[in-house]
């Protein structure tokens, strides 16, 4: 079966003052109908840029190569008008809330109704009904009165729900959620995740959930793709990856998560930061931060390879990972940092 979304060898480059920046470098991802794929990585790993590219919303001056097939048709070579028409009923995106993501001078009801009416036709009144229905569905209280309110009259969590209502109003087949819970406090975050999970099972849509928080994905995603410096470094079913990460970066991300069953322990952060993406990286981009790194890692770039069914890693030492790092007092795999468990 052809996947719903099939990204092959996607590269995205931006011209900057420091030279060409490779934001995304040969990424391949597949999402099946109804599947929930989590895309994880820290800021600058290329995950949001990838999401925007699928939606066709990337700012003009990026050089994009590769293929982004949606139900077999390549979005990158498609006529822009046709592609735009897919947004809404086929592809939809939930953006991270900020004051500027919703139009500040239009009531939220109208913003949703406008999209409904464009894609489905019908009367203004019917579109407004649908908008109210969607806002009710995502849990906005007192919908009748609040459809006529402006974005600034809602709380951050409510605005995030409104953005979800806007994305879902035309029942898309694929929902791309770009850090929709990042700005929210933990209880609201859990509510939003629960909401998307519920709506997903009701509507049967596929979801790409972009986040830097592996924890959010645990109960939500079917599979996970971990991105680092514009490349996918590990991918596989969510349980497999949580139980046995096969890339030191994934392992580091998991270690940096607070755990309820290990309260009081120190959290470990991955030392260092992302490499300069305007400079060529001959070997593995993670090697400067990696405790497993060998000379080989700095000379040759490891490609993503399958280590077991459906589970792939871009690490030369993927097979050794489950056994743990051999004790080496000079080079600890992870260094404890002063972050107390919350």
């Amino acid at each position: 079966m052809t996947p719903l979304l099939d990204i092959t060898d996607l590269s995205i480059r931006f011209r900057t003052d420091d030279g060409e920046l490779r934001a995304v470098d040969g990424v391949s991802l597949q999402v099946a109908e109804g599947e929930v794929l989590g895309v994880v990585g820290e800021s600058g790993s290329g995950k949001s840029v990838t999401a925007l590219t699928v939606m066709g919303l990337l700012a003009g001056d990026a050089a994009v190569t590769g293929q982004v097939r949606y139900r077999g048709a390549d979005l990158l070579t498609m006529d822009p008008t046709k592609r735009r028409a897919l947004c809404g009923p086929e592809l939809a995106m939930v953006y991270q809330d900020s004051m500027a993501v919703l139009n500040p001078t239009m009531t939220v009801g109208r913003q949703i109704a406008m999209v409904v009416r464009h894609h489905r036709g019908g009367t203004k009144k019917a579109a407004m009904e649908r908008a109210a229905e969607m806002l009710d569905l995502v849990g906005i209280p007192d919908v009748r009165a609040r459809v006529a309110d402006y974005p600034h009259q809602f709380s951050g969590g409510q605005r995030q729900r409104i953005l979800i209502a806007l994305a879902l109003c035309c029942e898309p087949r694929l929902l791309i959620a770009d850090e929709p819970t990042t700005a929210l406090d933990v209880t609201v975050q859990a509510q939003i995740v629960e909401l998307v999970r519920k709506l997903r099972s009701e509507l049967g849509m596929a979801v790409v959930w972009v986040t830097h928080d592996l924890g959010v994905l645990a109960g939500l995603a079917d599979s996970v793709a971990v991105m680092y410096a514009g490349r996918v470094v590990e991918r596989g079913p969510v349980d497999t990856i949580y139980a046995g990460p096969r890339h030191p970066y994934t392992e580091g991300l998991l270690r940096s998560l607070p755990r309820l069953d290990a309260a009081g322990e120190r959290l470990t952060a991955i030392p260092g930061g992302l490499p300069d993406l305007t400079q060529p990286i001959p070997g593995c981009a993670f090697s400067p931060r990696c405790g497993w790194s060998t000379e080989h890692c700095t000379e040759e770039r490891p490609d993503l390879h399958e280590i077991e069914t459906l589970h792939a890693s871009a690490c030369f030492r993927a097979a050794e990972l489950p056994a743990g790092l051999p004790a080496d007092p000079d080079e600890p795999a992870v260094r404890p940092v002063e972050v107390m468990h919350r």
């Binding site: 939606m55 066709g56 919303l57 008008t81 735009r84 028409a85 897919l86 947004c87 809404g88 009923p89 939809a92 995106m93 953006y95 900020s98 500027a100 993501v101 919703l102 139009n103 500040p104 001078t105 239009m106 406008m114 999209v115 464009h118 894609h119 953005l163 806007l166 994305a167 035309c170």
Partner: peptide, 28 residues
Amino acid sequence: QDYLRTARGSGLPERTVVLRHGLPNAAI
């Protein structure tokens, strides 16, 4: 502004995006 990106991402044609979402804000 991000809200124009939101409007585009909702599949509204560019004309609608500019005139219905953009212009009222630019007019202020």
